[in-house]
Design a binder for these strands. Sequence first.
DNA 1: TTAAATCATACGACATATTGTCGGATAAAT
DNA 2: ATTTATCCGACAATATGTCGTATGATTTAA
Lengths: 190, 190
Amino acid sequence: MKKNPAITAQTRQNLTDAFWQLYSSKPIGKITIKEITAKAGYNRSTFYEYFTDVYDVLEQLENSLISKLQEVPMQQLSSSGDPFPLEALIRLYSEHRQYLTILLGDHGDPAFQRRIKASIKPLMKETLVVQGAKDGFELDYTLEYALSAMIGILSYRFNQENAPSIEDLTSLLGELSSEGVIGKLMGLRE
Amino acid sequence: MKKNPAITAQTRQNLTDAFWQLYSSKPIGKITIKEITAKAGYNRSTFYEYFTDVYDVLEQLENSLISKLQEVPMQQLSSSGDPFPLEALIRLYSEHRQYLTILLGDHGDPAFQRRIKASIKPLMKETLVVQGAKDGFELDYTLEYALSAMIGILSYRFNQENAPSIEDLTSLLGELSSEGVIGKLMGLRE
DNA sequence: TTAAATCATACGACATATTGTCGGATAAAT
DNA sequence: ATTTATCCGACAATATGTCGTATGATTTAA
């Protein structure tokens, strides 16, 4: 008998959903398998047919999310003449906001932030090198700098109550990218 | 009989040290109290005289670290005419590198990064406002941007094998602060 | 078309590990 | 000698991971 992908996929999804509900409100170390299966409506043993432990659920979830993130930016990241694809990154974050705010939030996974950067950086690097940029420590660290700032800002913005509009944010980020932090701070002095 | 601060402080420290050894190599959710007390040479029950659970150890450790970080930058952050205290932040990170690389690393605590920013940002903001900067969304987000980038870069640098020298890094960060990411990326084109 | 065989899916039960909370042993200070 | 801070041993409750097995759907053969 062949596996029935429809059924197993559904069960896997139910378990993952239940995990995600819990993970949204508390750190992974305080989530028990009993809680997950109870919420999803399965026997606790069934969990072990799909995952090895609680961390495994998160890992598989992150993998599929990283894959999705990889699909989109390929074109967008390299399209415009802009050396830094500000709006594409904002759009990317907004589209997956539901997961990213949690994974990058207070009891999210720090390793995930590194993985995101590691998956986007080579794409951007390639594009820039083709455009004539010198590939070395400076390029690598400049991209690390920019991506860290972007992720930090977007996580901050999407967790905030009275958040500024996307337009205002985009405009500010554009200024920071071209003027630099110091330029902006000097400009804020009257 | 009065409490003997010397003894309890020592026990607390031993337990914290043992916890830290474990935390340096695996996520907090996989650390058991049994492991901690075994490594520190105490009975498991003794742990509960000092901490409520494993997360409590981390929390107390973070609190004392945040306090230490608060002490230093007060003067340094507001001293120079520079609107952004690049070198002070690099020095601050280097001094507490041992803890920061772990806490900001792959199985560190995302909430800690937010806490660091939240503790440093008001100090910087105050200084800048005194110097005439307008206090609003732009200032707040600019600082969030800069601190995210700094923390991201420094964590990256201090986890790297063949890391660039502090001088090269300082120089690059200076350029990024004054030229912006785009300015730097344009400059890298030959 | 029907009936039997087969196998994927989910479950119940077991042994072991971890947790949190007692009351009590020990040793040091008064 | 008495008191009490510090640490420990033992207990009940909960969580973990791994079995073998029931169920029910699909395949195979009559």
